[in-house]
């Protein structure tokens, strides 16, 4: 059989909206105002991003607590050559960051080369000038 396989073009798009509820909604709104919010659990831990229910107990979380905007890198996954869809167009890393005042780690982008970024390095959020209440309101973390 040397006939080419029958093919057809198919474009899938995802057009969903979400109600975030009072806790994750407050977290997103906080980003717009340059604040990173965590939620305090009944046993006193601070979960970031803020979540409505404590993953450990299933109980509702309590007060919202401002954390960061600086913290320490816990792990990094380096991207030496960003692709056009990556959030920044310079060498960077996806990193888990333990923000000051938080008891969980926060996944975000840290700018820098593989040589420059390492576990234990202190980094700070660099905010986008135009913010609309999304995780991209933090452009990246930088040393």
């Amino acid at each position: 059989m040397d006939q080419p396989a029958l093919t057809s073009r198919f474009t899938l798009a995802y057009a969903y909206k979400r109600s975030l509820g009072p806790v994750i909604g407050a977290f997103m709104t906080g980003l717009r105002d340059r604040r990173i919010l965590g939620a305090r659990t009944a046993d006193g831990r601070v979960i970031v991003p803020a979540r409505a229910y404590d993953p450990a107990s299933g109980e509702p979380t309590g007060d919202l607590v401002e954390v960061g905007p600086s913290g320490v890198i816990e792990t990094v996954s380096h991207v030496a050559q960003p692709s056009p869809t990556d959030p920044v167009q310079v060498p960077f890393a996806w990193a888990l960051i333990r923000l000051d005042g938080a008891d969980t780690s926060f996944l975000h982008v840290v700018e820098g080369s593989a040589e420059a970024l390492h576990r234990g390095l202190r980094v700070t959020a660099r905010w986008r000038a135009e913010r609309d209440g999304s995780l991209r309101d933090i452009e990246a973390f930088v040393p």
Binding site: R18, S19, L20, G21, I24, G25, A52, Y53, G58
Partner: peptide, 25 residues
């Protein structure tokens, strides 16, 4: 129901069922 997230929506029903049963999670 823009006032609740999907987790908030299911929890509302679940808590009412548990309360009716006199139980907790």
């Amino acid at each position: 129901r823009p006032d609740v997230s999907m987790p908030g929506l299911v929890r509302e029903a679940a808590l009412r069922a548990l309360e009716d049963a006199g139980l907790t999670f």
